[in-house]
Design a protein around this nucleic acid. Sequence first.
DNA 1: AATCTATTGCAACACTGTTGCAAATATAAA
DNA 2: TTTATATTTGCAACAGTGTTGCAATAGATT
Lengths: 122, 122
Amino acid sequence: MRNTVAKTEILNLIKSSNQAFSHAEIEAKLEGLCNRVTIYRVLERLEEEGQIHKFVNINGVLKFAACHDCTDHHHDHHAHFNCTSCGTVTCLEEVEPVYKVPKKYKVQEVNFTLSGLCPNCC
Amino acid sequence: MRNTVAKTEILNLIKSSNQAFSHAEIEAKLEGLCNRVTIYRVLERLEEEGQIHKFVNINGVLKFAACHDCTDHHHDHHAHFNCTSCGTVTCLEEVEPVYKVPKKYKVQEVNFTLSGLCPNCC
DNA sequence: AATCTATTGCAACACTGTTGCAAATATAAA
DNA sequence: TTTATATTTGCAACAGTGTTGCAATAGATT
Ligand SMILES: [Mn+2]
Ligand SMILES: [Mn+2]
Ligand SMILES: [Zn+2]
Ligand SMILES: [Zn+2]
């Protein structure tokens, strides 16, 4: 996979923040640096490289966040918190839900999203 | 709130199944009984009446399910399971995630969605 | 510098969900 | 039963998210 201006900028943006970004937010921050389709494709590549992870936010929209403490294959096991006041979405990497499904189910993927008030808005 | 043909049919459909339905699935089953916008509005009304609850599926699309054992105000606290093989989405009303967020956060809403293989597909 | 292949831009599209407004209809009142 | 009225519906139009095909462009390698 090649490194390009768009890829570098998008990765910088995401890595420089502890927030998760939606496609629309990234597009706004980049201010016309590249086409919106490119953003989607770059995000896909960054995810394949294991540099970012994505998840479905509580409103159904995809969010992308840097991988910090994420261990290899369970990028998506931790909780994500959506503040209803300031709108920010944060990885709570230390928060993992404990649950028990009937043993006839085989769980492969987990999405655990919370919303409410973040520390800044409480 | 008035009872109408559309409302009755949609409620029957949802109540007669233990699966959760998307708007598109309901539209397909109703076979032109009413306009698609009406379906959205009926679903909204049924939710206000407490007869159904909605949640964001693991793919970001809204799903609607009947309220059976749902207790009053936490329709959305239980888990939902999306089978990657047969595509069905089921309420796991007995499955509630246990978690602990840093006390500076105030949680208001929870979305907990699992995907994998259901008992029929295991 | 030339080559090759991955990446990009563009246009077009599918899908989900929402809104305004006029017409239709369920329900309550006469 | 008929009338009045407020709710519900259909339609058209729209916004937002995400995807695809294809030709043009630009990284990387030689
Ligand atoms: Mn995360
Ligand atoms: Mn449910
Ligand atoms: Zn906040
Ligand atoms: Zn299944």
